[in-house]
Nucleic acid binder design. Sequence first.
DNA 1: CTGAAAGCGCTAACAC
DNA 2: GTGTTAGCGCTTTCAG
Lengths: 337, 337
Amino acid sequence: MNIKEVASKAGVSITTVSRVLNTPEKVNNKTREKVLSTMEELNYTPNWFARNLQTSRSNIIGVVMPDTLEISNMETAKGVEDIAHKHNSNIILVNTAYDPQTEKTQVMSLIERKIDGLILIQSLLDSEDIKVIRSKGIPFVFVGKNDNSEGENVVYTNYDEAVEEVINYLAYMNRKKIAVILPENQEFINREKLKGYIKAMKNNSLDINESYIIKTENSLEGGYVATSRLLDDIKPDAIFAATDTIAFGAIESIKQNGLTVDDVGVVGFEGLEAGAVVEPKLTTVIKPSYRMGLTAGRVLFDMIEDELCEDANSIMLQAKMKIRKSCGNKERIREIW
Amino acid sequence: MNIKEVASKAGVSITTVSRVLNTPEKVNNKTREKVLSTMEELNYTPNWFARNLQTSRSNIIGVVMPDTLEISNMETAKGVEDIAHKHNSNIILVNTAYDPQTEKTQVMSLIERKIDGLILIQSLLDSEDIKVIRSKGIPFVFVGKNDNSEGENVVYTNYDEAVEEVINYLAYMNRKKIAVILPENQEFINREKLKGYIKAMKNNSLDINESYIIKTENSLEGGYVATSRLLDDIKPDAIFAATDTIAFGAIESIKQNGLTVDDVGVVGFEGLEAGAVVEPKLTTVIKPSYRMGLTAGRVLFDMIEDELCEDANSIMLQAKMKIRKSCGNKERIREIW
DNA sequence: CTGAAAGCGCTAACAC
DNA sequence: GTGTTAGCGCTTTCAG
């Protein structure tokens, strides 16, 4: 089923059929009607490859992320998708499982597929890879800073300042020995968060000790085990868990050890819905994931369509602290979510 | 930058270049080396449109779902993606927001994009739409039954039997007035679940009353409000929440009303990770989402590659009840997750 | 307003 | 092992 059949059946040339598809206003009313009806009749859909072979735009953009099961990544992807739809585009979603090699391979394969642009969430590409992408002339936007995002288009959130705020708050709540549990697969973000932690600890004249900072798997179990170790060992009076999932594990461990968050306060990071239903409800930092996706999408389509590749944008969206009960704030006692 | 330039620069014909790309073993070692190096030199990537114009396979499959933020949908998508990668394919992800019209439009646009196949998760398409897809010759697999999945390829889970098991268990725990809260956007699934509910209630000689069954938004708030209404009104001694999210809201409401799960037991459905961290931990039914994705992916690629479109597969994967403390099982008191 | 014909970049018979 | 050539289905000059 192709344009030729439609043409012959409608008694016109293929050019006319093509025109009905692309510039219908330039075709005589009657002819157009006829062509349209034979298209219907023959159940014809134009061949997208043939079309794009000319225009060489695919109306597809690639969205690459380390884990499609992390809800914040998907919120970002949804933001991108919402923008993409407005531009008549779809997204190809790729999961890299936090593996730089997989990411590289996947990105290259996307480029071969002639995607119009690329959104790289929590990218682990090295500067060499980025140079290659650039040389292919594919517009791309990072979501989340990384070691090579300097001077590139990047939409990010201020992890360091957000953590600083968290620690300041814990200090204000009279916590002195504040430990940190980091997920082992997010090196760059961890560095940012630690920056804020260290700055705030110093500003509040609190002790920083290497044994206060530990890394673990980003899971309930990881948080649980890490916290149990901390409780046995340095006995902190507060724990900053760098992800909500770790925080949930931490709370569980504290409870199982017969302690409460009055003894050991917990703050998470991310803003998972579950934070409102754990007991006690989790104080956390809400990442603006969806808005990051929207913003990154807009920047990307600006580049694709207006070819405004001039200056790189570096756009920061604020993370927001959400105070609930898990670090001992009594005033929050009647709050529902 | 095209195959022609590479050919002339390497001093060979375009056929040879093409062969290096597709059947490298059929090209003389030296020639191949030379071609490969000039490709490198010219930073050449083959034009995917031109390629597919011939083979008319895109190596893309469409995955359509009502909500990309529902973790179980994404688990299914991940299963599909894992299979797709093995077949050198990518997935285009589409969000329909539970709107049949959007789903239809999106599916049609995917078909124009010449996707090789389609995975339809919780589809709301009508039989007319399905006929159209079929007429285009695109292989597709449903994940989750629906009103039109009879006689089509479908991978599903046995909602009715799973709910039956839940109700039997509650009856065994001596609960008599068992209410149900359903999410308002999942009509078909609700019907299946109600089937199991009614069957089990009858088998256990328990009263069924219309006011025991209510629908609400699929959210914490929805579950909270619905439960509060039930507690004011018919005062059930157990609630089957048809989604975990609703269950979390229900537990919150029970607590806020000064009751415990000894008064009103709660069982959810889905197996969200958060179920292990709420207080009390949630008894629920675990949906085999990831395996459904894997299975659907395998079936789809069988159809795409071997063109085995003969008999439609109808594959059921068992949902599994996970008993924790939220319906008053004292034996589970020491369990961690 | 319509049609003929020349590609878009690549693959795949078919010859050599 | 390699090259020639005829398309894949469409868009787009260029004539009429």
